[in-house]
């Protein structure tokens, strides 16, 4: 951000109010003082963002290029090792496993969240008795602290007293209880199910608001042309919702790759690292092994992944904005 010179007010509509349209005789701050006054509005936010949002990003890059040990925290000195930490990751089988599991976790979660979210949005599209109350209730899982959700699901998935095993056995779908969280074959599935439960309300709410803005005439026309419900969805709704879907998709990826609390409480990344993702692995390296250099390197790979999808998001975001204004 440049602050060294007085910012120029753009000639767009909203600035007229404060500057150009001031009637004659109105006291108007002199230009030099003006930008100082303006600066006081943004300075606290800029300072905060710089110190607590941007500086950590920079500091992580720095740490990832250093050999950080417990002693480094006392002395503040850590030897520069260049890209060694990243080279180590390339030879680290667990890193690649975490990357792979993160990808699987993300894909499965998003397919579930967006699929169920879209179905529910379509269900609630036309209002019916109690639909408003139902939609409000469906938002509750989104509002619960993740720790609460994870704790409840930890018990639902419990081998002995979990209600899921109880229900599945009652329905004769399984003979023996399933070790959901204690077997490396099932743990990722359990974590994905929980994450879908957490994410459905968000998808539903966004798709619902998108559906509300679709033009009704198109559907009347399609109906007159003899299109059935499925055809209307496929040829009218989906194409119209494509920009919104792109936004929900990229946001969901960004939210899902960084999931930490849920996995940490449910499985700690285990058993046998079967639910380790980049987020939990970075935590483990830094805060369990006190190897902050490698932890930072893994964190930065995660930042890179998020950045890729953030660019995708911003592009679709701008396109929707442009479409909305035009």
């Amino acid at each position: 951000m440049k602050h060294s010179r007085p910012p120029l007010p753009a000639s767009s509509g909203s600035s007229l109010a404060s500057l150009a349209v001031a009637p004659p005789g109105a006291p108007r701050p002199r230009p030099r003082r003006l930008w100082l006054v303006q600066l006081t509005f943004v300075l606290p936010a800029l300072a905060y963002l710089a110190a607590l949002c941007l500086f950590p990003l920079y500091y992580n890059v720095r740490m990832s290029l250093e050999h950080v040990t417990v002693g480094s925290f006392l002395t503040g000195v850590a030897p520069f090792v260049g890209l060694q930490n990243y080279r180590d990751l390339l030879g680290d089988a667990l890193f690649f496993r975490a990357l792979e599991q993160m990808a699987l976790f993300t894909v499965l979660s998003i397919v579930g969240q967006m699929g169920i979210g879209m179905s529910l949005a379509l269900l609630f599209w036309r209002s019916f008795p109690l639909s408003t109350a139902m939609r409000a209730l469906l938002l509750v899982p989104w509002l619960l602290p993740l720790i609460v959700s994870a704790t409840v699901f930890q018990w639902i998935f419990d081998f002995d007293s979990g209600v899921l095993n109880y229900a599945l056995r009652g329905l004769h779908l399984i003979g023996e209880p399933v070790p959901w969280l204690t077997s490396s074959g099932y743990a990722l599935a359990a974590v994905v199910i929980t994450n879908i439960w957490v994410g459905v309300p968000f998808s539903m709410a966004v798709f619902y608001s998108g559906l509300q803005s679709l033009p009704k005439e198109l559907y009347e026309a399609a109906e007159l042309d003899g299109a059935n419900a499925l055809q209307r969805f496929w040829f009218v709704t989906l194409p119209l919702l494509r920009p919104l879907t792109a936004i929900v998709f990229s946001l969901s990826v960004i939210y899902t790759v960084k999931v930490f609390d849920l996995i940490f409480v449910l499985t700690h990344g285990g058993p046998a690292d079967s639910t380790q993702t980049l987020a939990t692995y970075s935590y483990q390296l830094s805060f369990r092994n006190l190897d902050f250099g490698h932890g930072a390197a893994v964190g930065n790979v995660l930042v890179l992944v998020s950045l890729c999808f953030a660019v995708l998001y911003l592009r679709s975001f701008r396109r929707t904005m442009a479409a909305g204004e035009g």
């Binding site: 963002l49 805060f287 930072a296």
Partner: peptide, 19 residues
């Protein structure tokens, strides 16, 4: 920038700020 900052994985924040 604000949108981007919001999207950064929060695991990197304690990693740096702890030190």
């Amino acid at each position: 920038l604000l949108l981007l900052v919001q999207m950064m994985p929060n695991i990197v924040t304690p990693n740096a700020l702890y030190a």
